[in-house]
């Protein structure tokens, strides 16, 4: 029943800056299946949001450039579409939800009208039908008194409610893919729980595939089927949810999982942070980007970028520890034991 809906191959995105060209995304590959959730996890500056915007072709034209790669949506390369065709895909086929709900709503326009806009444009519905649909969407995302709220303006909603409206807008045209870029980062924990629950319910009802971009492994564990871990513009490890959480192979994934607070652990147990700071993409060398912070670095890591190693149908990792030449003493216990 898995049907591939989106395939991103070897995507490179570079930005023109005052200091010259900077490659923010350096060869990203992933696939998305119908009705599934792919989580892209990474810290700030890892290139996860840039990847999402590249798929939507929403990168700023004056300084960003997709220098290489393809984005195949149902077999069609989105990078070759005309601006007009892309506009049709955006919203009706692929929709996006941003981190800050206030900036993605037009403050001078009634909510109902904003939801109807997409319906009128993409589905060519009549006004009455579109309004009916907008009302349904608001009810679907759990906004009380939906009928009256259609006439309200964005500032009359709270943060959580606004994000619900944004989700209603995004899903109004039944898109096949929803890209959610840190959808709950600006919200409180109790509201985050509401929105995540809502997204899961809606996905079940509408069979939408979701690309969830987040820095929070807790949110990933709650939502995702597949996980891609990004670091400095590369996907360093990708696999199913269980593979990433229970058989992590990349030292970065491992480090991330260890540095997360664990509610059931005792408080005297110290947290294990990843030392150092995330690298500056402008000054990256030729080696593995994580080499400077990795507790298992070898000489080779500093100069050469590792290849992808394919551990199962779904699990790939980009790390020299997987190379057969690596002495076994160098390999940490957690890595390599699973796939003997």
């Amino acid at each position: 029943m898995t049907e591939e809906i989106l395939a991103v191959t070897d995507l490179h995105v570079s930005f023109k800056t005052q200091a010259g060209m900077v490659t923010a995304v350096r060869g990203v590959n992933f696939n998305l299946n119908k009705g599934e959730t792919l989580a892209i996890v990474g810290e700030s500056g890892s290139g996860k949001s840039v990847t999402a915007k590249a798929i939507m072709r929403l990168l700023p034209k004056h300084n960003a450039q997709i220098s290489q790669g393809g984005i195949l949506y149902e077999g069609q390369d989105l990078l070759n579409l005309s601006v007009n065709d892309m506009q049709k895909v955006r919203g009706s086929e692929i929709a996006m939800v941003f981190q800050d709900p206030m900036t993605s709503l037009n403050p001078t326009m009634r909510i109902g009208k904003q939801i109807m806009e997409g319906l009128l444009k993409h589905q060519k519905l009549s006004k009455t039908v579109a309004k009916e649909k907008a009302l349904q969407m608001l009810e679907l995302v759990g906004i009380p008194n939906a009928k009256e709220r259609l006439e309200a303006y964005p500032h009359q909603f709270s943060g959580g409610m606004r994000q619900r409206v944004v989700i209603a807008m995004a899903l109004a045209c039944n898109p096949h893919i929803l890209i959610a870029d840190e959808p709950t980062t600006a919200l409180d924990v109790t509201i985050q729980a509401q929105i995540l629950q809502l997204m899961k319910d809606l996905q079940e009802k509408m069979d939408t595939a979701i690309i969830l971009i987040t820095h929070d492994l807790g949110v990933v564990a709650n939502m995702a089927d597949h996980v891609a871990v990004m670091y400095a513009g590369e996907i360093v490890e990708q696999g199913t949810l269980d593979e990433i959480f229970y058989q992590p192979q990349h030292p970065y994934t491992l480090g991330l999982l260890r540095s997360m607070p664990n509610l059931s652990a005792s408080r005297s147990e110290p947290l294990i942070p990843i030392p150092g700071s995330p690298p500056d993409v402008m000054t990256l060398g030729t080696g593995c980007p994580f080499a400077a912070r990795c507790p298992h670095t070898m000489k080779v890591c500093h100069d050469f970028l590792p290849k992808y190693t394919h551990l199962s149908d779904s699990h790939t990792v980009m790390c020299w520890l997987q190379d057969e030449r690596t002495p076994s003493a160098q390999i940490p216990e957690e890595v390599g034991s699973v796939y003997e």
Binding site: V189, A221, Y246
Partner: peptide, 15 residues
């Protein structure tokens, strides 16, 4: 209790 329960746990099985 609600605050505690709202924290997403980085453990798929527990989730």
């Amino acid at each position: 209790r609600a605050l505690l329960s709202a924290i997403p746990i980085p453990d798929p099985d527990m989730e």
